[in-house]
Design a binder for these strands. Sequence first.
DNA 1: ACGTATTTGTTCGTATGTATC
DNA 2: GGATACATACGAACAAATACG
Lengths: 248, 248
Amino acid sequence: MPRSLKPVSALPRTTLTEAAFEQLIAYVVKGTWKAGDRLPPERELCQQFGIARTSLREALKAMELVGMLDSRVGDGTFVCPRSEFLSRPLLWAFTGTDHEELAEIMEARALVEENLAGLAAERASEEEIARIKEAITQMSNAISAGTSILEADMNFHLAVAAAAHNDVLRNAVQLLRNITRQWLKYKVQMPNVAASVLSRHEAIYRAIASRRPSAARRAMRKHLEETQQLVIQVVKKHGGSREPSPYV
Amino acid sequence: MPRSLKPVSALPRTTLTEAAFEQLIAYVVKGTWKAGDRLPPERELCQQFGIARTSLREALKAMELVGMLDSRVGDGTFVCPRSEFLSRPLLWAFTGTDHEELAEIMEARALVEENLAGLAAERASEEEIARIKEAITQMSNAISAGTSILEADMNFHLAVAAAAHNDVLRNAVQLLRNITRQWLKYKVQMPNVAASVLSRHEAIYRAIASRRPSAARRAMRKHLEETQQLVIQVVKKHGGSREPSPYV
DNA sequence: ACGTATTTGTTCGTATGTATC
DNA sequence: GGATACATACGAACAAATACG
């Protein structure tokens, strides 16, 4: 009998904690437990799962650390919104990485969003186009009111991504934007930037609404190239030092 | 004194487990512990950290969940290669949406790889071009030997991605390819497919080696469109049933 | 081939601090 | 203020799997 190879990561590695993972992840991801829902107390859950509380806690804690759950003493354990646990783990992967990888992230974002804009021009429903316009109105209002346009900016780009009808890429964009959010925050506070962003968004919107994919791509590309330039300025100004806690 | 607001996700929520978790991440990400390294035993580590073994274990389990560490009973805990710990969290994002998911993943992959091929034609070093050629030779040998071309196929696309000099996108490609690996496996077993793939790869290689970005993009696009068609056939044939354990 | 040491897996009991009602 | 519910944390012990002489 040939000596069996040692599996690098064994498939049937079925520890109790891991089994609890799969259960918990399934509940969260499939939506049995929705965002904001409160889980049964640890002492109940471990009875349901038929494992000791310590084992369950390891799974529960792990889920909390990756951003799927949030437990508060004296209160309970709650399900986090999807965007949380999508952005956190990837954040860690880029933790040690500063200047060069910021450029890479921006490039990746520009590349994906450019293509999404093109797809959106081909595939967007009327409703989705309306939602893009809403984001523009929201930004316009924010400028009038003198408040931050950061949220409206995010909404615009996510609306475009949604209109492209590809959830994989939409998630990727959301991810990359979350990572760069720190720097974008500074960017949109710079003088005259808000108005410029608004007009770029309007150009992109017009191209999508009138079903001109290549125009939409060009407009998005131009917009993100400008953003890239501004962010580089911002990073230089703020010393490029990463803020300690991006988990907001 | 005004009653303090309850923070939705507290920033300085400093539990011992969380502190240990951040330490562990830092060690892995900064490279203090490299891929394949073995960690000190739990009982030593928890002394170093000054916490109980239970608390440390919760952090270790979280690391394992995101794919940064791998614990084996009787052996020890080891650091996983970097490529591993990017795939799990993204997998969760996709498990919620099943139906058109495969098509979306393929589309995303095609889109990213098309652009990477273009970038590779602009940026590849001689060494990187040589590595692409190596992958082609490897596939040629595999065909002659009658063995699977799956590995050579992966190597080729990763070599192209590496030559594009954007680690973020390279990781994304690796991720998406890992996810579709199940289906690609069937594809490359179909008759005549291997030879066809090889000639497509050669075309892409020539375009990159001769620094023609748009030709490289076209060639990659064509190749992946063919792949997409074949995979759709394969899925129909195999019933499209998802295999149970994507955590490979 | 066997046995022992090492290491993770699992459980229980207990004490403490905090939030909610 | 008091009672209750809950998470946080520690330590000790045994089981099971693996590595190595």
